[in-house]
Design a protein around this nucleic acid. Structure first.
Lengths: 352, 352
DNA sequence: GTGAAAGCGCTAACAT
DNA sequence: ATGTTAGCGCTTTCAC
């Protein structure tokens, strides 16, 4: 029989035991003022002996501070990857309502560096308590973070990170490893001679290529384990369903032996139409991220597995941990949080 | 740009708007006393218009109630499945320290019905605010729950449940489905003619067989998809490593063609010694639950995959949600929480 | 039925 | 450098 008993000492008990006032106890705990060395150690001793820890309900209630947080993430359409992130942030902010934190989410266009700069300037002007962002435009993110550091505003990264910067916190998967996991899922117990890697055709002026590490994780795995395997790369236009269909059709009629297909970005559902109309029992398709539409393809059985993590939960945890750090004015125990990569198949889809 | 602003109306605002006192507002919210129909609707209107919701920090702080919870789960040795559960409960209780909940964990011997009855009587005598338990001894659990109902003490189940009973909450995986997922993992992309299902030799007087649904999920899958596949069942003695070794050795020398091996209980690590000393590149081994020792076997590469869920998290969530229900005196939105089944392989083991 | 008021344990501003 | 005190938003008891 084990017992957990939650009777806790109050700041009053500590003050009594140390023979000082509550104000002084508060000062030594939070380093808020000048306390003599002697009193300080008396108080610390009392805290230790009573195993005191503050009642967070009382302290949050009493503290009238408000915290403004800013998010800077890509804009999205319904069903997109970043919509899920956005939802995670929103619900984190909502759940923290008792802590009086305010959240402003800024969206930029991934194709347009200027929109990033514009939004980041808005954030600087608003002087928030903390900023949380992803890092598609390496150079511009770096510039922005330097300015934040100048203003003493802490910042955190989600999804990807820039190691050189002094961020408070990072939440994301290891993209390289996730790519390798996808390759493993695709090839495990098979011996592929060819695989098709489908990529998105995107504006060539675009600076960002956020999927590169994942793609490399994927192709390195294939090259390491199946050195003779040929990787066919083909590009589809995400905004033109008919062209996707014809692109795939012409590719697969030219390469009828290709049975392993992967997409390392989050939009494997774009293949759905083609796959549905060209059923093939021994084809294997692997994608990434648990977008609604991807899950539907999994359920339908036209794709085989998905590598993902719980996207909204990742955003939720990132914001709440970061807020915790900012509010309590401390660094986290672990700076980098690599979240677990989930494997999703038809068999374990139900309660995700 | 989206904004979440956490300025919320207080009970004062509601009272003002409705032209009543705070006490009355409290009465209508929690149904604590007699309020005239007229005042009631005025207050409800004000609440709605102001979109009021109570500040939980303040309410928890003001409410001096203490809540005693009891857990009733199997005893365990270090590294066992139930140790992880236990840890989940402990950390949930610890994290809830501001809410003044006390937790007493009672352990019984899974081989010994009497120990279950003894502990359950202790719990009845202590009259806790709520009880959380698993359900190995069907009959005795039912009897216990009836008595709890007589005393108006709510109870929750983890891991397995008895559908006929009026439990408040259940957290667990769907064991049948998890068995099927294990079978899928074992056989996917292969065409097995024989599989070995290893079971634990246990005291025959023992009433409980908690793994039955999982085992059936496993074998039904095999029978459905591979009707010609022969399932060899063999029993090992968990307390006798040498005998395990010899049992396996003699089995596999008699059945050298068996390459698919599964264990539907949580102790697949028991096979480790044999597997390690008899390496075989085309053997496939699947187990369940993320015990440390199982994870070590995965890492080492002697088993292939594990079906699991985050055990301590399941316990944590179960206790916190249940406590929430009991403290707020309400039923949960969803009674049954089927937690997601994770697939663990060497490739996604790292950040679990 | 309803209102008034005393805390809950803490923070922060004000005294000393 | 240290003590005092007025709240924070709510629960709960007591009075009317």
């Amino acid at each position: 029989m084990q017992k957990i008993n939650n009777k806790t000492a109050t700041i009053f008990d500590v003050a009594d035991k140390a023979g000082v006032s509550r104000g002084t106890v508060d000062r030594v705990i939070y380093g808020r003022g000048r306390v003599s060395q002697e009193t300080r150690s008396k108080v610390q001793k009392a805290i230790e002996e009573l195993n005191y820890s503050a009642n967070s309900n009382a302290s949050i209630l009493a503290s009238k501070k408000e915290y403004d947080f800013a998010c800077l993430i890509p804009e999205f359409k319904k069903g997109d990857y970043w919509e899920e992130m956005n939802n995670g942030f929103l619900s984190a902010a909502q759940d923290y309502s008792s802590y009086s934190i305010n959240l402003t989410i800024h969206h930029y266009d991934q194709q347009d560096v200027l929109s990033f700069i514009r939004e980041s300037n808005k954030i600087l002007a608003a002087k928030p308590a903390g900023v949380i962002m992803n890092t598609v435009f390496r150079e511009e993110v770096t510039g922005f973070c330097r300015k934040l550091e100048d203003e003493n505003i802490p910042y955190a990264f989600v999804d990807n990170k820039i190691d050189e910067l002094d961020y408070t916190l990072y939440y994301g998967v290891d993209p390289y490893k996730s790519g390798a996991l996808g390759a493993w899922l695709l090839t495990n117990r098979t011996n592929p001679e060819e695989v098709a890697l489908v990529r998105l055709l995107r504006d060539p002026r675009r600076k960002a290529d956020p999927n590169r590490p994942r793609r490399h994780g994927f192709s390195d795995y294939i090259e390491d384990f199946f050195p003779k395997c040929k990787i066919h790369t083909l590009f589809i236009d995400p905004d033109n369903p008919e062209r996707i269909y014809s692109t795939l059709e012409s590719f697969f009629s030219q390469h009828p032996t290709v049975r392993h297909i992967a997409m390392t970005n989050s939009r494997v559902y774009l293949l759905g139409d083609y796959l549905r109309r060209h059923p093939s029992p021994d084809r294997l398709v692997v994608g990434f991220d648990d977008l609604e539409k991807n899950l539907a393809c999994l359920k339908e059985g036209i794709i085989d597995s998905l590598v993902t993590r719980h996207i909204p939960m990742q955003a939720y945890n990132a914001l709440t941990s970061f807020a915790e750090c900012v509010i309590r004015n401390k660094r986290p125990e672990h700076k980098n949080h690599f979240v677990h990569m989930d494997i999703l198949t038809q068999m374990n889809l139900d309660n995700y």
